[in-house]
Amino acid sequence: MSLSTLTRPSPVHRPSDLLAAYLTGSFYFSSARGTLLADGVHTRVRAGSGGRARAAAEALDAAAAAGLPDPVVVGAAGFRPDGAAGLLVPAVVRRAGAPAAMAAHLPEPRPGTGWTVRPRPEPDGYTTAVSRALELIGDGELRKVVLARALELTGDHPVAVPALLTRLVHADPAAHAFAADVTAPGDPAPRTLVGASPELLVSRRGALVVANPLAGSAPRAGDETLDRERVARLRDSAKDLGEHAHTAAQVAEVLGRFCADLDVPERPEVIGTPTMWHLSTRITGRLRDPLDPACSALGLAEALHPTPAVCGVPAPRALTAIADLEPEDRGYYAGMVGWSGLDGDGEWAVTIRSAEVCDRTVRLFAGAGIVPGSDPDAELSETSAKFRTLLRALGLEHLV
Rank of each mutant, 00 (worst) to 15 (best):
P290D: 03
R95I: 12
S31Q: 07
T43D: 15
G256S: 11
V93K: 09
H105M: 07
G40V: 11
G195F: 07
A175T: 00
A171Y: 08
R235H: 09
V310L: 00
V159L: 11
G86Q: 14
D329K: 01
R286Y: 03
V254W: 00
A315V: 13
T383M: 02
T273I: 01
V72P: 08
R228V: 05
A47P: 14
T7N: 09
E266T: 10
V371A: 13
E347G: 14
P123G: 07
V12H: 15
H398F: 11
L291R: 15
T320R: 14
R149L: 11
A334Q: 03
E141M: 05
A321D: 00
V146W: 13
R44S: 15
T281W: 10
A215H: 10
A385D: 09
R282Q: 05
L165I: 04
A171V: 05
T273D: 08
G395Y: 05
R95G: 09
W277E: 01
D156Y: 06
A378R: 09
V371N: 10
T166V: 11
T320A: 13
D240H: 13
V270A: 06
V92G: 03
T361G: 05
D240C: 06
R191E: 03
R233C: 14
R8A: 14
D375E: 15
P265N: 04
P213H: 00
T128Y: 07
L380T: 10
P109G: 10
Q250M: 03
P290C: 04
L214V: 09
A174V: 07
V45M: 07
C295F: 01
A63H: 06
L37E: 07
E347Q: 15
T351G: 10
R363K: 10
R286V: 04
V350S: 13
D39I: 04
A96H: 05
D82N: 08
P109A: 11
D61L: 11
G155P: 10
G338W: 09
D156E: 12
L364W: 02
P9L: 08
P173W: 04
V264T: 09
G206I: 02
V146Y: 09
W277T: 01
A66E: 06
